[in-house]
């Protein structure tokens, strides 16, 4: 029963959010504020229950281990990150705000030392190495021409794209002559990349709508009448939103949305 009610509340809220497609209205606002409030409260509780409690309080002050047979003793080393975390909050008190810099200094220092090596290796050197055609062609040595030739064309295109985009972002010389030509090709490469990203983004956004639509049609009600009921509810919400929306003067947000 609880699942049934929960599912229908979710279905109703989905329709309220979708009513924004008509125009900004109180149903949409209600669902939006409810979502933000619940999401924040949920995350705060999760952080407390899964991080602060087991990894700070449970390690230093009290035994909260689920297994009572496991011996427990306080580990006072965990006080160090705990105190650093607490003094981060001093940013809210102007008189002692300076203390938060200690915690920040620790985070920045640790971050730089810990990350420089792996980041350089994985994000830069490995990527540069994989840009060279002779590296990319290694797996295709001895392959039949039907595989070798397309792979070679790909490898050369990839190399040209990398070099021309780098030239485009090279501002120490004026973009004229060979540099200018390379930069122009670089712009085209960037445009193609942005186009691919935009196409993927459209696909992702449609996927999200498909996910909600599937929930409304297939998950909302097991007996098979869900869609007709939801359609009626949706139409009702839009009609009421239209009536309420016409009574209220348009807000700046709704104007900009339209």
């Amino acid at each position: 029963m609880a699942t049934f009610i929960g599912t229908w509340i979710a279905a109703g809220l989905t329709l309220m959010i979708l009513s924004f497609l008509y125009k900004d209205n109180p149903f949409f606002r209600f669902a939006e504020h409810l979502y933000v409030g619940i999401a924040n409260a949920f995350v705060v509780w999760l952080v407390w229950a899964t991080i602060v409690l087991p990894d700070f309080i449970g390690r230093v002050f009290i035994n909260i281990a689920p297994d009572p047979d496991v011996t427990w003793s306080p580990d006072f080393w965990f006080l160090v990150p705990g105190i650093l975390g607490l003094i981060m909050l001093t940013r809210m008190i102007p008189a002692i705000e300076w203390m938060s810099r200690w915690a920040l200094a620790f985070v920045v220092g640790w971050g730089a030392g810990f990350m420089i090596g792996p980041v350089l290796n994985s994000y830069l050197l490995a990527q540069v190495y994989a840009s060279f055609p002779w590296v990319n062609m290694q797996p295709y040595i001895g392959a039949p021409p039907g595989e070798y030739v397309p792979a070679l064309v790909n490898a050369i295109i990839l190399f040209i794209c990398v070099v021309t985009v780098l030239i485009y972002f090279f501002f120490s010389y004026e973009h004229k002559g060979v540099i200018g030509g390379g930069a122009k090709i670089g712009i085209w490469v960037l445009m193609v990349a942005f186009g691919a990203s935009f196409g993927s983004t459209v696909m992702a956004r449609v996927s999200l709508f498909v996910g909600r639509a599937r929930f409304l049609v297939q998950d909302a009600e097991p007996s098979g009448h869900a869609f007709s009921i939801l359609l009626t509810l949706g139409i009702l919400i839009v009609i009421i939103a239209a009536i309420v929306g016409r009574r209220q003067p348009p807000t700046k947000e709704s104007e900009s949305a339209e």
Partner: peptide, 24 residues
């Protein structure tokens, strides 16, 4: 997600990951 597919493809091309699934 499909949005990130183009970003991560370079890691597939470099062999740092051996498979990549993008979106629905």
């Amino acid at each position: 997600t499909a949005v990130s597919f183009a970003d991560y493809f370079s890691f597939y091309q470099s062999g740092q990951i051996n498979g990549l699934m993008g979106g629905l």
